[in-house]
Nucleic acid binder design. Structure first.
Lengths: 152, 152
DNA sequence: TGCATCTGATACGATATCGAACTAAGTAGT
DNA sequence: ACTACTTAGTTCGATATCGTATCAGATGCA
């Protein structure tokens, strides 16, 4: 592979990394004291994908080590935003349920994000998002598959 | 703004966040013991954009707090990969220079990344990178401008 | 010049991240 | 049923991140 091509992918990942950081900061500025992006990500996932899954399922979905999830879930549980229950199908495992408070918080954060997103939309309209989203999803899937491959 | 549209941007940032995480993991697996993605990012930036800039310049370029940069630079200096010198133009400030060892390390890491990138290329070819890169750059610029705006 | 203010960098402390080791429970092979 | 292996989750320790406070040097203004 030509060096310029390698550089092209580096540039891509670099831009993506910075956007991730900026959007994360944008979100965290609107979260209540003590909550960070991973907390919100869990709440959002539980609502969008359904709750009752195990911590390990969530760790895999977010591509983070399970120890990080343990920590994040502990924070959410301490605040009453999720409830952890024994998994009836597996004695080693647990199920994660979102509480009414968790739902309410997630909705209020999304509402608080609206103005920021509305400010982005004029310069980067929804059709432009739709134009790049399939490629990003494809790239994410490829990286994900790569991860488990030899030498990944 | 319609809720579906807000959700569209959330989906976008979500994909970007995961790709950022996966690519970061890919990179860190190829870094020597004790070095993390931010260390490499600094070395790469010093070579691509030129060295001799101040720590604060770098912090702004990466969108991280300056205290984080202090920490990252300390790690790089301890390993002899960069050199910090007093800024002749400003007694409070410093200049960051990359060393020969730093250059060599950066080059070897890029070489080590090549196979991983070559494995991505069949499923996500360079022309597809080029197709989405301008949009991502535009989005990054908008978010960057937003950051300093009121309520950003 | 003297003083208030601003700016670059670091010290410190609180929390987050994550790898390694551990415990408990499930699974498979005999 | 017994043993070896695998898997889910937590604990612990090392390091990273980042906000606050601090310090030193720069700048602006009287």
């Amino acid at each position: 592979m030509a060096p310029e091509e390698t550089g092209l992918y580096f540039t891509l990942f670099n831009e993506i990394g910075i956007i991730g950081q900026l959007s994360r900061t944008l979100l965290e500025a609107r979260l209540p004291e003590g909550l960070l992006a991973p907390h919100f990500t869990v709440l959002n996932h539980l609502i969008r994908m359904g709750d009752g899954r195990t911590p390990l399922d969530l760790a895999r979905a977010f591509q983070v080590p399970k120890t990080s999830l343990t920590h994040t879930l502990a924070g959410l549980e301490r605040r009453g935003l999720v409830a952890l229950q024994p998994n009836p199908g597996d004695g080693r495992s647990k199920q994660v349920w979102i509480t009414a408070e968790g739902r309410a918080l997630r909705d209020s954060v999304i509402a608080a994000m609206e103005p920021a997103i509305a400010a982005i939309a004029p310069g980067f309209p929804p059709d432009r998002v739709e134009a790049i989203l399939p490629a990003l999803t494809a790239l994410r899937r490829i990286l994900d598959a790569q991860r488990d491959a030899p030498g990944g």
